[in-house]
Amino acid sequence: MSSSSWLLLSLVAVTAAQSTIEEQAKTFLDKFNHEAEDLFYQSSLASWNYNTNITEENVQNMNNAGDKWSAFLKEQSTLAQMYPLQEIQNLTVKLQLQALQQNGSSVLSEDKSKRLNTILNTMSTIYSTGKVCNPDNPQECLLLEPGLNEIMANSLDYNERLWAWESWRSEVGKQLRPLYEEYVVLKNEMARANHYEDYGDYWRGDYEVNGVDGYDYSRGQLIEDVEHTFEEIKPLYEHLHAYVRAKLMNAYPSYISPIGCLPAHLLGDMWGRFWTNLYSLTVPFGQKPNIDVTDAMVDQAWDAQRIFKEAEKFFVSVGLPNMTQGFWENSMLTDPGNVQKAVCHPTAWDLGKGDFRILMCTKVTMDDFLTAHHEMGHIQYDMAYAAQPFLLRNGANEGFHEAVGEIMSLSAATPKHLKSIGLLSPDFQEDNETEINFLLKQALTIVGTLPFTYMLEKWRWMVFKGEIPKDQWMKKWWEMKREIVGVVEPVPHDETYCDPASLFHVSNDYSF
């Protein structure tokens, strides 16, 4: 037999072997998808029940369902290793196997995995149920939502704001400190077992692309791009910072340095994350009609249902689908009040099986009107990829998912749209002054938050990498806050605090 014939037969044999492996992989994935749908849905439903009704029974049910899901994933991840990716030609099959071969938290021992889940659930519970009591009246206690958040959004009393700011960190942050220390250790162990340098590197892996249509993007490039983007917006932020400082000097004349940092408790919310609520103090042309339409919403008797129905109309107007019937029947759109304790931070849920929901303790404000559009943007994205195989139902990356939500809320905030839905009067006219007011309001929300987020994530990356010793977490946190964000702590904090974890995203294990 000629050498060319042998070569042809060899190629046929290799192709047949690849085809056999690929067919086996497809069969394996079909079985996995069928089983995963049910187990993931049960786990998601148990998590939803806990988040909307925080009880010991629900946390136990959530843990049990989560353990079943984790055990299943660990088993299936091991089985998926049997299919070598280099022998799979079908890109859809390869991407699913690649996702499943990534072990995630299931790489930890059973004891450590359970401990990590306990830590995460405990931190979430402390954050959502933590109360601050009035020292003069111990029976008068406030949760973060709505009590403390209400103070931080609306109060102009310097000392009341300081009390709310400090009490939240003292009551909740200190409880979270030992848990967060354990969390860092276990998450790093999980990341390294998955061949990442640390948990920050694991997060950045979400943005990594290897040879898809000839395109590559590394975790290191992400760090470079983040640094570059921050340097680009820094001059604009510094101008905004100086303008806000001048306006705060008028409101709090004896508390603000004309050349120094801004006190952290005066920036519009509990964390200084969004400066939106400073608009009334900083509006350049106050004689113009108010483009913050909160009062109009209240006057027109809007409620949470109306807010979300208007958001749905907005999405339908640009060619996107209505929310499902189940969305309206199962979402929690208002604070249950004293009936039950719930996690009030707005979140969009894709539970699986076409079950999409939003959890939000909606208030009738323009801020929540825009947040509703943001969260519904997440749901629209979830619905758009719902037909994909189970392992591919995700956003391109976390940042893109947020961008989908944010672009919709930005569009909904324009005076033209607000006028079209009757929240600005029919005779409202846009001119240079109203446009400047609008742009300032947008800058308070968007530009003001960028250094906050950059600095927070930089601190977390450094902590996970071990570049900040545990006994210097708070020292470095406030050094970076002053240097990068231009914000100063109103009272000193020692290493018993854990100020970063006083933010939902940190205590609940979300990256930005």
Rank of each mutant, 00 (worst) to 15 (best):
N90C: 15
Q98Y: 07
A25H: 00
E56A: 12
P84K: 05
E22N: 02
Q96Y: 03
A65R: 14
K26Q: 13
W69F: 06
Q42Y: 00
N51C: 07
A25L: 02
N64K: 14
M82R: 14
I21T: 10
K26C: 09
Y41E: 01
D30I: 15
L79F: 15
N49F: 01
N33A: 05
F28H: 00
F28D: 01
Q96I: 03
L95F: 08
Y83P: 01
A46I: 03
T92R: 15
T92G: 15
D38H: 01
Q89E: 15
W48K: 00
E35G: 09
L91S: 14
A71H: 12
M82H: 11
W69G: 06
F72K: 14
D67G: 07
T20W: 02
D38S: 01
K68D: 02
Q60I: 13
F28A: 01
N63T: 09
E35W: 04
T92C: 15
T27I: 07
L39D: 03
K31C: 02
I54P: 09
D30Y: 02
Q76F: 15
F40N: 14
L29I: 02
A25E: 01
S19C: 03
A71K: 13
E57G: 07
L91V: 14
N33E: 14
K68S: 05
L73V: 12
E57T: 05
E23V: 10
A46K: 03
L39W: 09
D38M: 02
T20Q: 04
Q96L: 04
T27A: 15
T27F: 15
K26F: 06
N51E: 02
N61I: 13
N90T: 15
T92E: 15
V93E: 05
Q76C: 14
N33H: 14
N49W: 01
L29N: 00
H34I: 02
F40W: 09
Y83K: 01
L91I: 13
F72T: 04
K68W: 04
N90Q: 15
E23K: 14
F72Y: 15
L39C: 14
L29A: 02
D38P: 00
Q60W: 11
A46S: 06
Q89W: 11
H34W: 07
L73M: 09
K31Q: 02
Q98W: 12
T27V: 04
F40M: 14
F72V: 05
A25F: 14
A71L: 12
S19P: 15
M62T: 05
Y83C: 13
I21F: 03
Q76D: 13
V93C: 03
T92I: 15
E35C: 15
K74L: 10
L73H: 07
K31T: 00
Q98N: 11
K68A: 07
E75W: 15
E35I: 05
N64E: 04
I54Q: 07
L79S: 10
E35S: 00
L91A: 14
A46F: 04
Q102D: 11
Y50P: 01
L45C: 00
A46L: 04
Q98G: 12
V59I: 13
N61D: 12
D38L: 01
N51W: 07
L95P: 06
K26Y: 04
D67S: 11
W69V: 15
H34D: 01
I54W: 09
I54C: 06
E57Q: 04
L73Q: 10
L79D: 05
T92K: 15
Q89H: 13
W48D: 00
Q42H: 15
D38G: 02
Q102P: 14
E23S: 13
A25M: 02
I54D: 05
A25D: 01
Q42F: 02
Q98R: 10
S19T: 14
L95T: 10
Q98D: 13
L39I: 14
I54T: 06
T27S: 14
E56T: 11
V93R: 04
E22P: 03
D67T: 13
L73A: 10
N61P: 07
Q98H: 11
A46W: 03
M82W: 06
K74C: 07
T92M: 15
L91W: 14
N51L: 05
E37H: 01
L45G: 00
Q60K: 14
T92S: 14
E22V: 04
F40G: 07
A71R: 13
E37P: 04
D30W: 01
M82L: 12
E37N: 01
L45R: 01
V93H: 00
M82I: 06
E57F: 05
N90V: 15
A25Y: 02
L45F: 06
L45Y: 03
E22D: 13
V93W: 03
Q76A: 13
N33D: 15
Q60M: 11
Q98F: 05
L79K: 05
Q42E: 02
L73K: 11
T20I: 04
Q24W: 04
K68Q: 06
E37Q: 04
Y83R: 02
L91E: 12
Q42G: 05
L91H: 14
D67L: 13
T92F: 15
Q89D: 15
I54S: 06
N90L: 15
E37G: 02
L39Q: 14
F28R: 01
Y83S: 03
L45P: 02
Y50I: 02
I54Y: 06
M62V: 05
Q24H: 03
